[in-house]
Design a protein around this nucleic acid. Sequence first.
DNA 1: AGGTTTTTGAA
DNA 2: TCAAAAACC
Length: 473
Amino acid sequence: MGHTQIWWIRRDIRLQDNQTLDAARQNADFLIPLFIIEPELMQQAAPKRRDFILAALADLDRQLRDLGSRLIVRQGPAQQALQALSTQLGEISLFAHEDYSPFARQRDLNVSQFFPIHHPEGVTLRHPSAILKDDGNPYTVFTPYKNKWYESPIPTPADCLPAPNSLPPLPQGLDAGQLPEAQASEHFPATSDEAQSRLQTFADDGIQRYQSLRDRMDLDGTSRLSPYLRFGLISIREAFVEAQIAYHQSKTTKQRSEIRTWMDELVWREFYTAILYHFPNVMRGAFREKYQNIQWRNAPDDLQAWQDGKTGYPFVDACMRQLAHTGWMHNRGRMIAASFLTKDLLINWQEGEAWFMANLVDGDPAANNGGWQWSAGTGTDAAPYFRIFNPVLQGQKYDPEGDYIAHWVPELKHLPVKFRHEPWKIDPAEAKKYGFKYGSDYPKQIVDHKFARQRTLKAYSEAKDSFFENQEG
DNA sequence: AGGTTTTTGAA
DNA sequence: TCAAAAACC
């Protein structure tokens, strides 16, 4: 009987540049590429996210078969699945990349009581504990974190691990298990080829205009790589390496700045991963205590209208419908939708955080929580609470022709640009010309922005004042 | 990674 | 009188 090693696949669904696979196949007589379908995945993950993972695994299975292996699937909980394998196979060695979310850490702690886990890195480029202030404490402000982060070198292509061209065999007589059927996404095909092609296309071209175009909702200015990074169809190292190549090839300061802006976004990903790692309580409430007791409104109908994309604010509704339909939302859209829920509707950001996790194909607890707390003004390095987006001005600025609105809110697409942004301003007689009736073809505003703005400034300032009063008393 | 109101200073 | 800048939220 030889030595069996398990590559426990989590968010590293790839063969290339995979430190965990690389470690697991060394000195292995048998290698099991294992995915454990944990109850949390099937019950709690957004359907589109679950489908993305399952489709990516099916694609990985095809690649593994080309190498004479195949994907082995088990039902969770993880510890039971591993116990069963160990009973069947005898001694096993377990390799799984270190993951940093509270759920993953607790699970790995439980499992490691029974099976020691070899824990290569790879989810981030720098370990959350690798970037600390000189006094040893974690950063809570992005800019100094970023400066420290960039002090270490960015990897080069030579640092990336090639996909193996052979793998140790599977043990005899092992049941492969079965992946549930997944619905394929037309917007995010979950294959390795698609991931590589998106990265290459973006690194060759779009990255050079990223800074200039990234906020335009009507253009394809972003990489749309988030789900592929989320589940490791490409590695974060590959992403940085490709960006760094483009950076070194660029001729002008302007071009370098465009590229650097994209790299900074990847550093935000590392930053929020580190924040959740060091401050797991952010999952339960405001990072900044003085905003823990904001008097949020309990307004289920307003929440529902926001979720359905029927707030009567076309830009917000377009964002929310894009999310529901594709499982993805533009980053600026996320900020605007979040500002609207928290500042215009004065609904607890945790409602929005949950809705995004229930719908996003790229939903990641660290990035999602960080983004929501930033938007709500309750987080580390957050937007100041008085920074309240005006949903109309944002639309006019970042969707100047109203094309994005027209696509996702088609009931407005026959209106002139001005009225796509402000359908309430159209004269009923003129509306008739376009076969449009405000209030029935498209909902009326569920809240007046100007009024809502004052309400929110008051609520935040009261929360802050009462916090400081309680502190003194 | 903003918006709104007030002030300023050049027509 | 108006647009840009500054101040404030």
